[in-house]
Amino acid sequence: MKKYEFWRKFVIIITLCFYLTIANSPPAFASIHKYPETADRVMYRSVQSLRDTDDKAWQVVLYKRVKSGVVNSFNLRLVGFPGTELQHPVPLKVAAGDREIGKANDIWSKSDLPMNVGEYDFKLIIAQLESNQPLRLNLPVKNQPETTLLVPPFSVREWRLLFDTN
């Protein structure tokens, strides 16, 4: 009986330790990464792979640059695969449900990015998001009607966290 009691207590203690470890662990957000760029400038970014309504793949990168504790930029970069070309300079229309949130200005012309890449100033858009409601991004695709990229709630949640991160 003593041997049985020892193992019973041992299993209970190990189980309690395991549950306490899990209960006290902070949530993990694996796709928000911090990149020191210079001594006083840091980039934070969230990377997602999403598909549009035409089932084409897009890499979606939301990033911000912080210099000396001040956010310098908060941009959304869209990379189309394979060979999708975006119209420039055309703003990105953003909606949540039936509500249009606004348009993100195209800043592609300020860089040397290829035609399948769009870069948009997203600071005013992200500041308006009050919930993790899915977003619709209406992409201005060259020589085609707009295509829609659906951003799921878990991505919107991560974007809002990125907006609040310093």
Rank of each mutant, 00 (worst) to 15 (best):
E100D: 15
P145S: 13
M1T: 07
P145R: 07
M43E: 10
R8H: 14
V151K: 00
L50T: 11
G83D: 15
L137K: 01
D106L: 03
S131K: 10
K3I: 13
P89M: 07
W7R: 02
P36F: 12
L16P: 09
Y44D: 02
N72A: 15
S111Q: 13
L50C: 04
P89Y: 04
L139C: 08
V90H: 06
E146Y: 04
V94S: 00
H33A: 10
F81T: 08
I32R: 01
P82E: 13
Y44N: 02
V70N: 07
L124G: 09
V11Y: 12
A96K: 06
E5H: 14
A30I: 13
V156G: 00
F10R: 10
S155Y: 10
K103M: 04
R8L: 15
A96S: 12
V151T: 05
M43I: 13
C17E: 02
D164F: 07
Q59W: 08
I107R: 03
I12M: 12
K34C: 04
I125M: 01
I13M: 15
P89G: 08
P145K: 11
L149F: 04
S25Q: 09
S49G: 09
A96H: 04
D112K: 05
L150I: 09
I107C: 02
N138E: 08
L137D: 02
F122V: 00
D106V: 07
R136Y: 01
D40T: 14
L124C: 04
E119Q: 05
V151Q: 01
D40R: 09
M1V: 07
P36I: 12
P26N: 12
Y35F: 12
F10I: 06
I14E: 07
A104Y: 01
L135E: 00
D98L: 05
Q48S: 01
P91F: 08
R160L: 02
D121C: 08
K142M: 03
N138D: 08
L92R: 03
T21R: 10
S31L: 05
F6N: 11
S49E: 15
V42R: 13
N105I: 13
Y63L: 07
E85H: 09
G102W: 02
A57H: 05
T84Q: 03
C17M: 15
K123E: 05
L50I: 10
N166E: 14
K93Q: 09
E100C: 11
T38W: 11
D54I: 02
